[in-house]
Design a binder for these strands. Structure first.
Lengths: 239, 239
DNA sequence: CGAAGCATTGAAGTGCGTCAACAATCGTGG
DNA sequence: CCACGATTGTTGACGCACTTCAATGCTTCG
């Protein structure tokens, strides 16, 4: 299931067969991970990066007073710590939110891959810059938007990203997060997450049951969140 | 004054004379900019990136309801839109907060530079990943910290970054932002910025006058902000 | 000297947090 | 298959950090 990544890359540019083969063979192995496990610890020296094949992973910043913040959610097709290739360590933990599967790309292999195929290097660089854009977007959202707007934006973003890798089906997708975890993402208490979800439900915008979310009124959610997916950079590259 | 950038890069790795020369000659010209001018507009197609030589620039996201959020501050030595090299447009505006001067690097020149010197490519990639880390840090801060903690963190971060490029002098530095702008950074109203600044002053932690800030008790500020500069990745690269 | 921008202060409102229960669901072992 | 504890979700009452509105003083500069 490296397909999800390749699908995203091919959507951005055309990949030659050689490039695609080289990308595939830059991964050395795959690993299965249990839900709620620590994948990479903050500060740990890194010599490999992980591509998420299945499941949900988050970047988690421990806030010293015990609280924590989830700065981004990752789904299949996302490199969860490609930035570790240049940074050599992370300023956050990586944790699984569900049972997951990752493919391992040794940094040595990434170095060879990007040296041999500069265009792939540029694509990988692009991927980390899209992560940066998501962080930027969420810092603005946390700085300026109300709870209900942020929550609407969360679901709008997830729908757009999951559609891009074929994991959404008629505006519905698997959603394994607890309300506590949603709170850690949006900077809200679990109590307020609960009330805000109820308000979205009451307005007929969304349905979140067991481990599944359905966006009943995508248009309405996007209006509420003032969502335009421009920060996801899903369009094709020019040139 | 490309020196500020070179100083940062050399602090991270050793640069060969060839690499340094190539970096220097990748800039085609310099431009002077007035305070409060729009440098790059959101969505505009890009074919060059700008290195800030002098002054203050911010990335600004317009929030559609008229409000805006400044997602990051840039000082001399920062590439303000290097991410535009791979993204080809920006999801935010770039605006000057003071009279400024930038050096222009055409994307074509960056492509040649990084193709010829992959290590420089990796360094430039690293620079954008540090920007991403700052966005990540601030999204966590905005999601979890109180007004006074965020403001303390702002000044701790600026001191660390300005020291790295020689623009701080015994815990003091030029600080041209208005309280409105600080509010747009920290997600606060100008009124509350004012009161929070007063509280920091009252506690003897900081002095912010006309266009200058002095951190009177760096230790105290860092404790208050729980600041550890790890997300700035200012340490030397291993290998 | 007047206007415009910026800083400061007070009073009142509110979105979200905190605290404290209780209900529902789930996984596990007997 | 049921019993059990643990996790997750739900609800209510109350408090506070920050906002909002509104006014006033202080700079700065043409």
């Amino acid at each position: 299931m490296i397909e999800a990544l390749l699908r995203r890359l091919r959507h951005r540019v055309d990949l030659s067969d050689e490039e695609e083969t080289a990308i595939r063979s830059s991964f050395s192995e795959t690993r299965e991970l249990r839900a709620d496990s620590l994948v990479v610890r903050q500060g740990q020296p890194l010599d490999e990066s992980l591509l998420l094949l299945l499941g949900w992973v988050a970047r988690s910043k421990g806030m010293a007073d015990g609280r924590r913040h989830l700065s981004i959610l990752h789904v299949a097709g996302d490199f969860v710590d490609l930035h570790g290739y240049t940074l050599q360590r992370l300023d956050h933990d990586l944790i699984t939110l569900s049972d997951s599967k990752v493919a391992v790309a040794p940094h040595k292999a990434i170095a060879e891959l990007t040296a041999r195929f500069p265009r792939v290097g540029c694509l990988y660089w692009y991927l980390t810059n899209v992560d940066a854009a998501m962080h930027r977007e969420w810092s603005s959202a946390l700085g300026t938007c109300s709870a209900i707007e942020r929550m609407a934006q969360l679901f709008c973003e997830l729908l757009a990203r999951l559609e891009a890798v074929g994991l959404a089906d008629s505006n519905c997708f698997e959603f394994p997060l607890t309300q506590v975890e949603v709170g850690e993402l949006l900077g809200l208490t679990p109590v307020h997450v609960n009330r805000t979800l109820q308000e979205l439900r009451r307005r007929g915008l969304i349905e979140v049951e067991a481990r599944r979310a359905c966006l009943l009124d995508v248009q309405g959610l996007q209006t509420l969140a003032r969502f335009k997916g421009d920060y996801l950079y899903q369009e094709r590259s020019r040139s």
